[in-house]
């Protein structure tokens, strides 16, 4: 993976990252810009079906995901940021690979070809291809031993339908440790954040989130770094513990290490202000304006 062409990807942001978690999108764009990874947003993408379509009508979810695949150019891998979207898109694509009749039915439905050999990868994999050595060379600042829990949530952790496919365990800590962050082990890295129940049954999710944050505090972490925008939101919104930890999107910490400068725009969107922690570690400068609590 040394030729520049191989760093061309089509990009599926997904609803959360395009709206609620825009800071994740901004920092991803910054990281890719600095590293020379070219992302081209999938033209007119739609929601992958989210939990709700798959909960009520798996066929509807399948069709929604298939439309996205019918929009993907065949000549480059499709890069996905959201673990749930990644899971749905890969699962749908795998079903179509295993049964060409299903694929052809979807091609007829959309009037567009669906590339049978399309690679669908997570951003973490693009970084692994880029190479940890290259990444270190590109880093503008050290993470100064930032003690973080690599929090994957549930979906990147080998869902049963994709058991024989790639999975992404340990990549977050590999990458951030290469940038001189300090991964903390022993917390609930893979415990589910509560997903959509956060909107309907907040009591249930609050106790889960408090357990997760509590385990991170007990393990001696200063923050959690997550690969999932929904986890990030649930962990921030539903934590009622007295000691709250900042929750970062993985791309934010990466972009910070790579020297991105527009971090104020991302961090002001957090519900638990991460700036005091980062200032203490000398990762960002003092505030330009006094902060509104």
């Amino acid at each position: 993976m040394n030729s520049p062409e191989s760093l061309e990807f089509s990009y599926f942001p997904g609803c959360s990252i395009a709206t609620t978690a825009m800071e994740s999108n901004y920092s991803l764009m910054q990281s890719c810009h600095i590293l020379g990874i070219h992302l081209q947003e999938l033209e007119d993408w739609n929601c992958c079906g989210s939990s709700s379509a798959y909960s009520l009508d798996p066929e509807l979810g399948f069709n929604l995901s298939a439309r996205n695949l019918s929009l993907a150019p065949p000549d480059r891998p499709l890069l996905v940021m959201c673990p749930r979207c990644l899971h749905h898109l890969r699962h749908t694509h795998l079903d179509m690979q295993q049964d060409p009749h299903i694929r052809r039915a979807q091609e007829r439905r959309w009037g567009r070809p669906i590339p049978p050999d399309l690679e669908i990868i997570h951003f973490l994999e693009a970084l692994v291809r880029f190479g940890l050595g290259n990444l270190k060379k590109g880093a503008a600042r050290s993470l100064n031993g930032l003690k973080f829990v690599p929090y994957y949530g549930c979906t990147l952790f080998r869902p049963p339908a994709l058991q024989r496919q790639k999975y992404y365990q340990a990549e977050m800590e590999n990458i951030l440790a290469a940038l001189e962050g300090k991964p903390v082990h022993g917390a609930y890295n893979y415990r589910c954040c509560g997903s959509f129940l956060s909107a309907v049954r907040p009591e249930t999710v609050t106790s889960l989130v408090n357990e997760i944050i509590g385990s991170a505090v007990a393990a001696g972490a200063d923050c959690l770094v997550t690969s999932c925008a929904m986890c990030q939101l649930n962990l921030e919104v539903r934590c009622t513990a007295t000691r709250k930890l900042p929750i970062f999107h993985f791309s934010e910490i990466l972009a910070l290490a790579l020297g991105a400068k527009d971090y104020e725009d991302w961090f002001t969107r957090h519900l638990v202000d991460p700036r005091p922690l980062l200032e203490d570690l000398g990762l960002i400068g003092p505030p330009l304006l006094p902060r509104v609590p």
Binding site: S51, Y54, S55, C154, T155, F157, R158, P159, P160, Y190, R191, C192, G194, S195, F196, L197, R201, T204
Partner: peptide, 11 residues
């Protein structure tokens, strides 16, 4: 209805 498909059980 409570199940969110986190797949902890399956793993």
């Amino acid at each position: 209805w409570i199940c969110v498909s986190c797949h902890t059980c399956s793993s």
